[in-house]
Design a protein around this nucleic acid. Structure first.
Lengths: 148, 148
DNA sequence: CACATTTAGATTGTGCGCAATATAGTTGTG
DNA sequence: CACAACTATATTGCGCACAATCTAAATGTG
């Protein structure tokens, strides 16, 4: 028997429950995303671009996804190499790079449409509970991201 | 206005809410763990060892943490280099490595005891809601880890 | 206009995270 | 005991993830 009253017990730590669940779900996406030739972070970038429907700065994408430029730059470079996005300079501010959809990236959306439901159906909670959980997770991200 | 009815909308995806919340919380741990000289995955390994209180095989640790040997081997090597764990061969099965606590690793527990509460207090939900959320995340990890 | 400050992004270095593979040790079968 | 099948761990290669640092461009102040 492990001592479940210890503050260090893994099963008492919300951080670990989050960490483990997140990795497990990302792993599950892999087999779906392999068919699109995307990694999970690449898929998130494409979701952000499909959603906004107009070129975004690297920083704006980072804000949406909770990632910084050190992470996004190589991800965006690979997406450009695969012909899914274009990276051009902002004419009005030459420091900025505007990330937009290439034709192949726009086309990929139709295929990607089928991915979420395949995963969503595997969550042990559905409907109202599903959305309530999502809202709570959003609150957590916001609470912890506020200072930085 | 973004079209919030799209199945690809980021704000409708539990996977992204999990991903973002998990990273945000791990980032928050960093400032606490820097004082212990641990990264977050290293901290998780130490939690597992403190909890089990006896040497563990690499595979056992991986099962507890949801990580594989390709991830754990370099993490365990760094913990050994810092004198926190020892890695010795199992006498009865020379393929296995048993990961145990070194004296410095045992001593570190007292310092680590103070970390969880600092983080836990920042979660926007507490008490019953906190534990309910943790249980739901455990259900998700189990549901998605079942097939591999 | 000069020049300090700020801002956007890229670069570098370290450390995960995982699939695929390699290797060594163990077990089962005749 | 030989030897095929299996198992536990390590290794390799690729792609994040982030802190720290760098560069260049824009902005503010006199």
């Amino acid at each position: 028997m492990t001592d479940s009253t210890s503050p260090l017990d893994l099963d008492n730590q919300l951080c670990f429950a989050l960490y483990r669940a997140s990795h497990a779900v990302v792993r599950a996406y892999k087999s779906e995303l392999d068919q699109l030739g995307l990694t999970y972070p690449q898929y998130l970038v494409m979701l952000a671009l499909w959603q906004e429907n107009q070129p975004q700065g690297v920083g704006q994408l980072g804000d949406v996804l909770g990632l910084d430029s050190g992470t996004l730059t190589p991800v965006l470079r690979r997406l450009e190499q695969r012909g899914l996005v274009v990276r051009c300079r902002d004419e009005h501010d030459e420091r900025r790079r505007l990330i937009g959809l290439a034709d192949a990236g726009r086309d990929l959306r139709a295929l990607a449409e089928k991915v979420p439901e395949k995963i969503a159906s595997r969550f042990p909670m559905q409907g109202k509970d599903y959305h309530l959980l999502m809202a709570q997770l959003g609150d957590i991200a916001q609470a912890f991201d506020n200072d930085r």
